[in-house]
């Protein structure tokens, strides 16, 4: 739109450019630097609530493009770990890095989301008063600032992207339905679709197949496996069958720290893991 010219007003015009904010106000959106190692790096993270140590010296690294499953009994700290990564909860101690450049502990939820970390909640949360297309439109990667949002129009490219995601999540038929009237499984899919619209570098998925039928589960597994490679995916799941069907690398969380790590078979034969689960969930496998 406007360019700098050599005149003395050039600078002024540069400052007054309506399509820009000052540099210090630009959110830190520099690309994630994964040249030197993992995309997600948690070191010695601890947090306690009223004396209860929900996370206790947790160490976890997720490599770029990896699909990682996190399993663990109730109260192992899985959801709290997600809360910490997405900025909802601040740990008492420890370090959390996204790539080698972004210290997540200094950022809040929107900043972290804009860096490229997407999250799917345990309970599907979609915007019920909006229709499916609108839900996807809101999640679409783009400039999130107020003025931009006010003036934003859905362009051809965006529309194409929405159509593509609608196709992926199988909701093309329902595109103009209000999200509130969708079935539980459809809401799960819609939420996954919203994650896709965000084009995150790292997806955190909390129990994606809860309440899904068997075929839906297969589709989800297929989708998540397909995503890995381009994006890093961390899946928290109870359903051992589902985990076994997608996981290459599994971490077992117990009492706030990693108990075991490895492939599903390695983990499943680990005596400590068996003890923790008491064989309880294993029959699903």
């Amino acid at each position: 739109m406007s360019r700098t010219d050599g005149s003395r007003f050039g600078k002024l015009r540069e400052i007054a450019r309506p399509d820009r904010v000052f540099d210090f106000m630009v959110p830190a959106q520099s690309p994630v630097d994964v040249r030197h190692g993992p995309i997600l790096y948690l070191e010695d993270v601890s947090v306690s609530f009223d004396g209860f140590r929900a996370i206790n010296g947790l160490n976890l690294t997720v490599d770029d493009g990896e699909l990682r499953c996190i399993i663990g009994p109730n109260g192992a700290g899985k959801t709290t770990m997600m809360d910490i990564i997405t900025g909802k909860t601040r740990p008492d101690s420890g370090q959390v890095w996204f790539g080698s450049r972004h210290n997540l502990l200094t950022l809040d939820e929107p900043q972290i989301a804009n860096l490229g970390i997407g999250r799917k909640f345990q309970k599907p949360t979609v915007f019920e008063a909006l229709d499916v297309t609108e839900n996807l439109e809101l999640a679409m990667a783009g400039d999130r600032r107020i003025w931009k949002t006010l003036l934003a129009r859905l362009d051809r490219e965006g529309q194409a992207r929405i159509d593509e995601v609608l196709e992926t999540i199988g909701l093309t038929e329902e595109r103009y339905r209000l999200a509130g009237v969708l079935s539980h499984g459809q809401k799960q899919w819609l939420e996954i679709g919203m994650l896709l619209m965000q084009r995150p570098r790292l997806l955190l998925v909390d129990e994606p197949v809860a309440g899904m039928t068997e075929p839906e589960m297969h589709r989800t597994a297929e989708l998540l496996t397909r995503l890995a490679g381009q994006q890093s995916v961390v899946v928290v799941e109870h359903d051992m069958g589902f985990v076994r069907s997608i996981a290459r690398q599994v971490s077992v969380l117990h009492q706030g720290s990693v108990l075991a790590e490895g492939t599903m078979d390695q983990v499943a034969s680990d005596p400590r893991v068996i003890e923790v689960y008491l064989g309880g969930d294993e029959e699903a496998a």
Partner: peptide, 20 residues
């Protein structure tokens, strides 16, 4: 779109935040 963000905020504030 801002209006839709605000409706979304009304109904599921945390979700809006995690979208960015």
């Amino acid at each position: 779109r801002l209006g839709r963000v605000s409706v979304a905020t009304r109904d599921a504030e945390a979700r809006v935040r995690f979208i960015g």
